[in-house]
Simulated scan of single mutants.
Amino acid sequence: MKSIIEIKESLINQLKNKKANTNYFLGLIDDYVWYFNQEKEMQEDIKARGRHYRAKSASGYLIDKENESLKNAVIFNKQKLAILKQLGLTIENVIPDDADDEM
């Protein structure tokens, strides 16, 4: 698995290749990184607490609650995909990271 630093560098390189590495789009990459990190935190919480966990209700009874990290992870992932769409980065137009090495 690539580190977030490698992913960020790859996204920046994609913008450079498209001659679109403007402050606005670079800012979107920073947003992408933020959502990436948030999603990873949600995944760690799900691993630690599970999809459901026991909690006390307002009336003091133990109940099973759905881990909100499930819903949040999906939201963060959707935001990441929306950012990639805004950047115009899809599998149809991506330039491989090692393409610079071949030139």
Rank of each mutant, 00 (worst) to 15 (best):
G88R: 12
A20T: 02
N23D: 15
A58R: 05
Y32A: 03
K8Y: 05
S59Y: 10
N67W: 13
Q14C: 09
W34V: 09
R54D: 14
E92F: 07
E92D: 14
K85P: 01
F76S: 08
K47V: 07
V94I: 02
K47C: 09
I29Q: 09
K71H: 13
D101S: 03
T22R: 00
S69L: 06
I29E: 05
R54L: 14
M103N: 07
S69A: 15
I5W: 11
D97Y: 11
E66H: 00
L70E: 14
R49E: 00
F76T: 06
R54F: 13
E39F: 03
I91M: 09
K18M: 12
V33S: 10
T22V: 03
F25S: 00
S57M: 00
A99S: 13
D101P: 10
R54W: 14
I7K: 10
S57C: 09
K47T: 13
I12A: 11
I7D: 00
K2E: 14
K71L: 12
W34P: 06
K56H: 09
M103C: 03
K19N: 05
L84Y: 01
N93P: 05
T90A: 00
D97Q: 11
G88Q: 05
Y32R: 06
V94A: 07
E6N: 13
L11A: 01
L62W: 13
D45T: 11
N77S: 11
E6H: 10
H52T: 04
D98V: 12
L26V: 14
V94E: 02
Q38P: 10
V33R: 02
K16A: 04
D64Q: 11
E102N: 01
F76M: 04
Y32Q: 08
L11E: 01
K19E: 05
D97C: 03
K16D: 04
N72W: 02
N93Y: 00
F76H: 01
K18D: 08
H52G: 04
K2T: 12
E102R: 11
L62K: 06
K65R: 14
I63D: 14
K2D: 11
I4K: 10
D64A: 12
